[in-house]
């Protein structure tokens, strides 16, 4: 696993999980920017299923409200685990 770094553009997963998740529905499938690496922790989605899993990086990811809701001029920063994210490659030359 290569950790993301501040400034990286990332896209959240679109999967609709069967159980507990800490990726809020409003932030699914959205593109944002990593603003900070915030330590590493076992994925809560797995811990909620009673799994003993290794820690992975956790990030503060900032989204423009427009990219979450289609409008709005504010920003929303969500804290997400590495497994919630993929590198955003769209729109790159």
């Amino acid at each position: 696993m290569t950790a993301y770094a501040p400034g990286d553009r990332v896209r959240t997963r679109t999967a609709d999980p069967a159980g507990h998740t800490r990726l809020p529905r409003y932030a699914r499938g959205a593109t944002g920017t990593v603003v900070q690496v915030a330590g590493s922790h076992p994925l809560a989605d797995d811990r909620a299923r009673g799994l003993d899993v290794p820690a992975q990086p956790v990030y503060h990811v900032r989204f423009a409200a427009r990219d979450l809701f289609g409008d709005g001029d504010h920003g929303v920063t969500v804290e997400l685990w590495h497994d919630h994210l993929d590198h955003d490659t769209e729109g790159r030359a």
């Binding site: 915030a38 330590g39 900032r62 920063t77």
Partner: peptide, 10 residues
């Protein structure tokens, strides 16, 4: 306005 959603450990 910047909204911070405390969705994980911080």
């Amino acid at each position: 306005i910047e909204v911070w959603d405390a969705s994980a450990e911080s």
